[in-house]
Design a protein around this nucleic acid. Structure first.
Length: 488
RNA sequence: GGCGAAGUGGCCGAGUGGUUAGGCAGAGGUCUGCAAAACCUUGUACAGCGGUUCAAAUCCGCUCUUCGCCUCCA
């Protein structure tokens, strides 16, 4: 068994081996923090979260960098328009740094709820201005960049292979699409900005050898990736829409500066669509995570995302979410049964399931297939538990361990708190447990006396508060809607 | 126009030259005081048209349709 990853650069699945044995260096383009996170962020970061988790599960030490873009890049053209963060600051009548900080916290808040592990390092663009300036200096020294009146541009002509990631290598064709006569100071219309001179009322600006200004929008990723992970890294992830120009520019400026390959494996995740149309900030159809979490368990969203492959587009709809919620509940129910049923005698052959799960994950992180294996396992477990012989304790422990590793460790779709840690809970949660224990005892007594009218009434009344009772083989169990929410 | 992705049963969604994906919904059944859950049974799908092959949903060609990128975007 070995891991293969689809490399956007070669457009093929390739066997993955890190450059340094045992250590994986990984960089993923982080969010620009000028608004709350939406479903697209969720898909992207959940997908890469699972990549990191699986790599770690496979025994690698993963050094995972995910930046925070807190320099506003421009609202319009790459070279024109308004700084997005500054614009939001204006709108909210505060300054850019507060905007950046506020939405950074909001971002992590949402990601935590989705069970996305924090990166090892989360560097910000504003804290790495010197590194970015240094990179520009290097490029100028090597003749790959030029300064025109305080603006520095990367010379695309000087770098062979520009556009190799997106396949946009035909410069003639590229240029014919560029608007005529807009900007004459560039030597070539495809050249992109490394450093921009700021005008009078630009708020976020820094001193540089060329002008008081701000870095170009591709620069930070190259500078920070190289600073923390080295000149050649194993994996660079990001959204598909960033292939061109962002990632192609990153490759150009990085490889021109170092003369070494920048990234070994490029991974691109696909887009979220809503009713078949791309969801985007600039379109008005973006779905805010905080709004969804209001009435949907964040882990259902996570599960929903992982039920499709990261390279497939994901179409969001109410019915699809509901179907996912029901399916996830089924898996959790199996866990519950496994935990609560009396020890049996029969052995359970877990190995084939564990193997298929691992094979799916090794095949370019095929989470939908991995989840399908979990469903099949769930069915097999339930069937075994339904039988007289049940499942022997040793087998049960083995299964529980696997489910914990697969469901919590790798996919992160099961609650960590769940109902299993009753004793460790505190405060109102503990109180609720105690009260429910009493209620269920009284109800059991009513049932014992064949007072079904009363027992049914208890069940109905509890349901109005969102607590559901089920009479299972293992006795009455209950679940409450608000208990589904993961702890932070 | 250029670059790229994709069209799978009621819905979502994997896979891929010959063997069951999986989930949700639906139907029938078992169990159960009832309900729920669970289990069993049930669906024979791969846009269209040609071609290659003993065999194609899977490979090739054409057509149609959808989506993304080519301005910021995960």
């Amino acid at each position: 068994m070995s891991l293969s990853i689809y490399n956007s650069l070669s457009r093929n699945k390739e066997k993955f081996e890190p450059l340094q044995p045992g250590i994986v260096s990984m960089y993923v383009c982080g969010p620009t923090v000028y608004g709350h996170a939406h479903l697209g962020h969720a898909k992207s970061y959940v997908s890469f979260d699972v990549v990191v988790r699986w790599l770690r599960q496979s025994g690698y030490r993963v050094k995972y960098i995910q930046n925070i873009t807190d320099v506003g890049h421009l609202t319009d053209d790459a070279d024109e328009g308004e700084d997005k963060i500054a614009k939001q600051a204006n709108l909210e009548k505060t300054d850019p740094m507060e905007i950046a900080q506020f939405y950074t916290r909001s971002f992590y808040d949402d990601m935590d709820k989705l069970g996305v592990l924090r990166p090892n390092i989360a560097p910000t663009a504003t804290a790495h201005i010197p590194e970015q300036i240094e990179l520009v200096e290097k490029l100028i020294a090597k003749g790959h960049a030029y300064d025109v009146d305080g603006n520095v541009y990367f010379s695309v002509q000087s770098f062979e292979g520009y556009g190799k990631l997106s396949g946009r290598t035909d410069q003639e064709a590229l240029q014919s699409g560029v608007r005529v006569g807009v900007r004459s100071e560039k030597r070539d219309p495809s050249d992109f900005a490394l450093w921009k001179k700021a005008d009078e009322n630009h708020v976020m600006k820094w001193r540089s050898p060329w002008s008081v200004g701000y870095p170009g929008w591709h620069l930070e990723c190259s500078a920070m990736s190289m600073k923390y992970l080295g000149e050649t890294i194993d994996i660079h992830g990001g959204g598909m829409e960033n292939k061109f120009p962002h990632h192609d520019c990153e490759i150009a400026q990085s490889e021109a500066a170092t003369g070494k390959p920048y990234v070994r494996f490029w991974m691109h995740n696909n887009m979220v669509t809503i009713n078949g149309i791309k969801m985007g900030k600039s379109l008005k159809n973006s779905v805010n995570l905080k709004d969804i979490f209001h009435d949907t368990d964040p882990l259902v969203i996570r599960f929903f995302i992982l039920q499709s492959h990261y390279r497939s587009p994901l179409d969001f709809s109410e019915t699809a979410i509901k179907a996912s919620a029901t399916g996830l509940e089924k898996l959790r129910e199996t866990q519950r049964r496994l935990r609560e049923q009396q020890a049996g005698t029969a052995e359970f052959d877990l190995a084939p399931f564990a193997l298929r799960f691992a094979e799916a994950m090794d095949d370019d992180f095929n989470t939908p297939v991995a989840i399908a294996v979990l469903f099949e396992l769930s069915k097999a477990i339930n069937a075994a538990l339904d039988r007289q012989e049940g499942i022997a304790t040793a087998s049960r422990q083995e299964i529980a361990k696997f489910l914990h590793r697969a469901g919590i460790g790798v996919l992160g779709i099961f609650n960590i708190d769940g109902h299993e840690n009753h004793k460790e809970q505190e405060g109102s949660a503990k109180k609720l447990d105690d009260v429910m224990e009493i209620v269920l005892a009284l109800r059991a007594e009513a049932k014992q006396n064949k007072n079904f009218a009363l027992s049914d009434k208890i069940r109905e009344m509890l349901l109005t508060t969102g607590i559901e009772i089920k009479d299972t083989k293992e006795g009455a169990v209950w679940s409450a809607e608000n208990r589904m929410k993961p702890t932070r």
